[in-house]
Design a protein around this nucleic acid. Sequence first.
DNA 1: TGAGGAATAT
DNA 2: AATATTCCTC
Length: 244
Amino acid sequence: MCLKLLLSGYIKYDCDPYMGLNSLVKRSCFFCSYNNNQAITALNMLKENRNRFDLIINDVYMPDMDGFKLLERVGLEMDLPVIRNGDPNLVMKGITHGACDYLVKPVRLEELRNIWQHVIRRKVESKSQSKSNHNHEKSDQGNEGGDQNENLNRKRKDAEEDDEENGNENDDPTTKKKPWIVWSIGLHRKFVAATNQLGIEKAVPKRILDLMNVDGLARENVASHLQVLTYSLKKCIYIYIYGN
DNA sequence: TGAGGAATAT
DNA sequence: AATATTCCTC
Protein backbone atom coordinates (compact mmCIF):
# COMPACT_ATOMS: atom_id res chain seq x y z
CA MET A 1 0.00 0.00 0.00
CA CYS A 2 1.25 3.39 -0.87
CA LEU A 3 -0.03 6.46 0.83
CA LYS A 4 0.15 9.83 -0.71
CA LEU A 5 1.08 12.69 1.43
CA LEU A 6 0.85 16.33 0.57
CA LEU A 7 3.28 18.47 2.43
CA SER A 8 2.36 22.07 2.24
CA GLY A 9 4.17 24.88 3.85
CA TYR A 10 7.53 26.44 4.04
CA ILE A 11 9.71 24.02 2.23
CA LYS A 12 12.86 23.96 4.17
CA TYR A 13 11.35 23.84 7.55
CA ASP A 14 8.77 21.28 6.70
CA CYS A 15 10.45 18.95 4.35
CA ASP A 16 14.14 19.24 4.66
CA PRO A 17 16.44 17.42 6.97
CA TYR A 18 16.71 20.48 9.09
CA MET A 19 13.61 19.34 10.88
CA GLY A 20 14.11 15.70 10.17
CA LEU A 21 10.75 15.39 8.57
CA ASN A 22 11.97 14.45 5.15
CA SER A 23 13.96 11.47 6.26
CA LEU A 24 11.15 10.39 8.53
CA VAL A 25 8.73 10.52 5.68
CA LYS A 26 10.96 8.37 3.57
CA ARG A 27 11.57 5.87 6.27
CA SER A 28 7.87 5.60 6.79
CA CYS A 29 7.30 4.61 3.18
CA PHE A 30 5.23 7.62 2.39
CA PHE A 31 5.04 8.75 -1.11
CA CYS A 32 5.54 12.42 -0.71
CA SER A 33 4.69 15.34 -2.89
CA TYR A 34 5.71 18.83 -2.14
CA ASN A 35 4.41 22.14 -3.11
CA ASN A 36 5.75 25.54 -2.46
CA ASN A 37 4.69 27.65 0.38
CA GLN A 38 1.58 29.00 -1.21
CA ALA A 39 -1.68 27.77 0.14
CA ILE A 40 -3.46 28.47 -3.10
CA THR A 41 -1.11 26.12 -4.89
CA ALA A 42 -1.82 23.44 -2.39
CA LEU A 43 -5.51 23.92 -2.90
CA ASN A 44 -5.19 23.67 -6.63
CA MET A 45 -3.12 20.55 -6.36
CA LEU A 46 -5.77 19.01 -4.21
CA LYS A 47 -8.56 19.89 -6.57
CA GLU A 48 -6.77 18.53 -9.58
CA ASN A 49 -5.90 15.30 -7.89
CA ARG A 50 -8.80 14.70 -5.66
CA ASN A 51 -8.04 11.09 -5.00
CA ARG A 52 -4.37 11.37 -5.06
CA PHE A 53 -3.62 12.27 -1.53
CA ASP A 54 -4.43 10.44 1.61
CA LEU A 55 -3.08 12.88 4.07
CA ILE A 56 -2.21 16.50 4.27
CA ILE A 57 0.34 18.06 6.49
CA ASN A 58 0.39 21.76 6.19
CA ASP A 59 2.12 24.48 8.00
CA VAL A 60 0.56 27.17 10.08
CA TYR A 61 2.51 29.90 8.42
CA MET A 62 1.67 30.51 4.82
CA PRO A 63 2.13 33.85 3.19
CA ASP A 64 -0.67 34.17 0.68
CA MET A 65 -3.59 32.76 2.57
CA ASP A 66 -4.45 32.28 6.14
CA GLY A 67 -3.43 28.71 6.73
CA PHE A 68 -6.69 28.14 8.51
CA LYS A 69 -8.64 29.08 5.45
CA LEU A 70 -6.93 26.29 3.61
CA LEU A 71 -7.84 24.01 6.45
CA GLU A 72 -11.49 24.98 6.30
CA ARG A 73 -11.79 24.62 2.59
CA VAL A 74 -10.11 21.26 2.56
CA GLY A 75 -12.39 20.10 5.30
CA LEU A 76 -15.45 21.35 3.48
CA GLU A 77 -14.74 20.22 -0.01
CA MET A 78 -12.74 17.09 0.58
CA ASP A 79 -12.66 14.38 3.11
CA LEU A 80 -9.05 14.32 4.00
CA PRO A 81 -7.18 14.19 7.24
CA VAL A 82 -5.25 17.34 7.80
CA ILE A 83 -2.42 17.65 10.17
CA ARG A 84 -1.18 20.98 11.25
CA ASN A 85 2.47 21.43 11.63
CA GLY A 86 3.67 24.40 13.49
CA ASP A 87 3.17 26.60 16.44
CA PRO A 88 1.87 24.65 19.42
CA ASN A 89 0.02 27.72 20.59
CA LEU A 90 -2.23 27.46 17.59
CA VAL A 91 -3.09 23.85 18.15
CA MET A 92 -6.54 24.46 19.51
CA LYS A 93 -7.40 26.83 16.74
CA GLY A 94 -6.27 24.25 14.23
CA ILE A 95 -8.40 21.56 15.74
CA THR A 96 -11.47 23.72 15.88
CA HIS A 97 -10.94 24.46 12.24
CA GLY A 98 -10.93 20.81 11.34
CA ALA A 99 -7.45 19.49 11.83
CA CYS A 100 -7.39 15.95 13.06
CA ASP A 101 -4.00 16.05 14.63
CA TYR A 102 -0.99 18.22 14.94
CA LEU A 103 2.72 17.90 14.95
CA VAL A 104 5.30 19.86 16.76
CA LYS A 105 8.64 20.02 15.17
CA PRO A 106 10.96 18.31 15.24
CA VAL A 107 8.84 15.37 14.32
CA ARG A 108 9.76 11.98 15.64
CA LEU A 109 9.48 8.77 13.73
CA GLU A 110 7.16 7.40 16.35
CA GLU A 111 4.64 10.14 15.83
CA LEU A 112 4.70 9.74 12.12
CA ARG A 113 4.21 6.03 12.51
CA ASN A 114 1.08 6.59 14.54
CA ILE A 115 -0.30 8.80 11.85
CA TRP A 116 0.64 6.21 9.30
CA GLN A 117 -1.31 3.58 11.19
CA HIS A 118 -4.25 5.86 11.54
CA VAL A 119 -4.40 6.60 7.87
CA ILE A 120 -4.00 2.95 6.91
CA ARG A 121 -6.86 1.97 9.12
CA ARG A 122 -9.03 4.67 7.68
CA LYS A 123 -8.17 3.65 4.18
CA VAL A 124 -8.75 -0.02 4.78
CA GLU A 125 -12.07 0.68 6.39
CA SER A 126 -13.33 2.79 3.59
CA LYS A 127 -12.17 0.25 1.07
CA SER A 128 -13.79 -2.66 2.83
CA GLN A 129 -17.00 -0.74 3.08
CA SER A 130 -17.22 -0.10 -0.60
CA LYS A 131 -16.05 -3.53 -1.66
CA SER A 132 -14.92 -6.83 -0.32
CA ASN A 133 -11.89 -6.38 1.80
CA HIS A 134 -8.47 -6.43 0.36
CA ASN A 135 -5.36 -7.69 1.91
CA HIS A 136 -2.87 -4.98 2.30
CA GLU A 137 0.64 -6.08 1.89
CA LYS A 138 3.10 -5.86 4.61
CA SER A 139 3.25 -2.83 6.73
CA ASP A 140 6.80 -2.17 7.58
CA GLN A 141 6.53 -2.02 11.30
CA GLY A 142 4.54 -4.59 13.12
CA ASN A 143 3.60 -2.17 15.81
CA GLU A 144 1.33 -4.29 17.92
CA GLY A 145 -2.06 -3.06 18.84
CA GLY A 146 -1.15 0.26 20.17
CA ASP A 147 -4.30 2.23 20.53
CA GLN A 148 -3.82 5.15 18.31
CA ASN A 149 -7.37 6.23 18.72
CA GLU A 150 -7.32 9.93 18.43
CA ASN A 151 -4.64 10.88 20.78
CA LEU A 152 -5.21 14.52 20.40
CA ASN A 153 -2.95 15.47 23.18
CA ARG A 154 0.50 15.07 21.97
CA LYS A 155 2.42 17.78 23.51
CA ARG A 156 6.08 18.02 23.32
CA LYS A 157 8.13 20.42 25.15
CA ASP A 158 10.78 21.89 23.04
CA ALA A 159 12.88 24.76 24.03
CA GLU A 160 12.82 25.94 20.50
CA GLU A 161 11.62 29.42 21.11
CA ASP A 162 13.75 32.22 22.29
CA ASP A 163 16.81 32.56 20.31
CA GLU A 164 18.30 35.70 19.06
CA GLU A 165 18.89 38.52 21.42
CA ASN A 166 21.74 36.47 22.64
CA GLY A 167 23.46 39.42 23.97
CA ASN A 168 26.88 39.17 22.44
CA GLU A 169 27.93 41.03 25.49
CA ASN A 170 31.49 41.15 24.39
CA ASP A 171 30.92 43.30 21.40
CA ASP A 172 34.37 44.63 21.70
CA PRO A 173 34.98 46.68 18.61
CA THR A 174 38.64 45.82 18.58
CA THR A 175 38.14 42.07 18.41
CA LYS A 176 35.17 41.72 16.14
CA LYS A 177 34.69 38.16 15.11
CA LYS A 178 31.76 37.20 13.03
CA PRO A 179 29.26 35.19 14.98
CA TRP A 180 27.96 31.93 13.64
CA ILE A 181 24.37 32.65 12.86
CA VAL A 182 21.94 29.94 13.81
CA TRP A 183 18.66 30.21 11.98
CA SER A 184 16.40 29.40 14.81
CA ILE A 185 12.67 29.29 14.37
CA GLY A 186 12.30 32.77 15.73
CA LEU A 187 14.95 34.20 13.49
CA HIS A 188 13.53 32.43 10.52
CA ARG A 189 10.12 33.85 11.26
CA LYS A 190 11.55 37.30 11.11
CA PHE A 191 13.07 36.42 7.81
CA VAL A 192 9.78 35.13 6.49
CA ALA A 193 7.91 38.16 7.73
CA ALA A 194 10.36 40.51 6.08
CA THR A 195 10.25 38.53 2.87
CA ASN A 196 6.50 38.54 2.74
CA GLN A 197 6.36 42.21 3.43
CA LEU A 198 8.79 42.98 0.66
CA GLY A 199 7.22 40.74 -1.92
CA ILE A 200 8.94 38.44 -4.30
CA GLU A 201 10.45 41.19 -6.39
CA LYS A 202 12.08 43.20 -3.70
CA ALA A 203 13.10 40.41 -1.39
CA VAL A 204 16.82 40.75 -1.74
CA PRO A 205 19.31 40.29 1.05
CA LYS A 206 19.88 43.95 1.75
CA ARG A 207 16.27 44.87 2.15
CA ILE A 208 15.47 41.74 4.06
CA LEU A 209 18.28 42.51 6.41
CA ASP A 210 17.05 46.04 6.95
CA LEU A 211 13.56 44.90 7.72
CA MET A 212 14.65 42.17 10.05
CA ASN A 213 16.68 44.60 12.05
CA VAL A 214 18.55 41.94 13.96
CA ASP A 215 21.69 42.88 15.73
CA GLY A 216 24.77 41.13 14.50
CA LEU A 217 23.15 39.84 11.37
CA ALA A 218 24.99 40.59 8.17
CA ARG A 219 23.84 40.78 4.63
CA GLU A 220 25.90 37.73 3.81
CA ASN A 221 24.02 35.75 6.40
CA VAL A 222 20.70 36.63 4.86
CA ALA A 223 22.03 35.93 1.40
CA SER A 224 23.19 32.50 2.42
CA HIS A 225 19.90 31.68 4.04
CA LEU A 226 17.99 32.94 1.06
CA GLN A 227 20.09 30.85 -1.26
CA VAL A 228 19.37 27.68 0.61
CA LEU A 229 15.68 28.35 0.72
CA THR A 230 15.55 29.09 -2.95
CA TYR A 231 17.42 25.94 -3.75
CA SER A 232 15.12 23.87 -1.59
CA LEU A 233 12.10 25.36 -3.21
CA LYS A 234 13.33 24.61 -6.68
CA LYS A 235 14.26 21.12 -5.72
CA CYS A 236 10.88 20.42 -4.23
CA ILE A 237 9.03 21.78 -7.20
CA TYR A 238 11.18 19.66 -9.45
CA ILE A 239 10.42 16.58 -7.41
CA TYR A 240 6.77 17.35 -7.55
CA ILE A 241 6.76 17.75 -11.29
CA TYR A 242 9.16 15.06 -12.36
CA GLY A 243 9.28 12.73 -9.42
CA ASN A 244 12.34 11.68 -7.59
C1' DT B 1 31.93 50.50 -5.27
C1' DG B 2 28.57 47.83 -3.76
C1' DA B 3 25.20 44.50 -4.33
C1' DG B 4 23.07 39.97 -5.97
C1' DG B 5 23.66 35.45 -6.68
C1' DA B 6 25.96 31.04 -8.08
C1' DA B 7 29.70 28.36 -6.81
C1' DT B 8 32.53 26.81 -3.53
C1' DA B 9 34.56 26.16 1.04
C1' DT B 10 34.39 25.05 6.01
C1' DA C 1 23.99 19.60 6.84
C1' DA C 2 24.18 24.34 7.87
C1' DT C 3 26.33 28.27 7.29
C1' DA C 4 30.26 31.13 5.49
C1' DT C 5 33.18 32.75 1.95
C1' DT C 6 34.68 33.46 -2.63
C1' DC C 7 34.05 34.97 -7.12
C1' DC C 8 31.92 36.82 -11.07
C1' DT C 9 28.79 40.06 -13.02
C1' DC C 10 26.35 44.23 -13.45
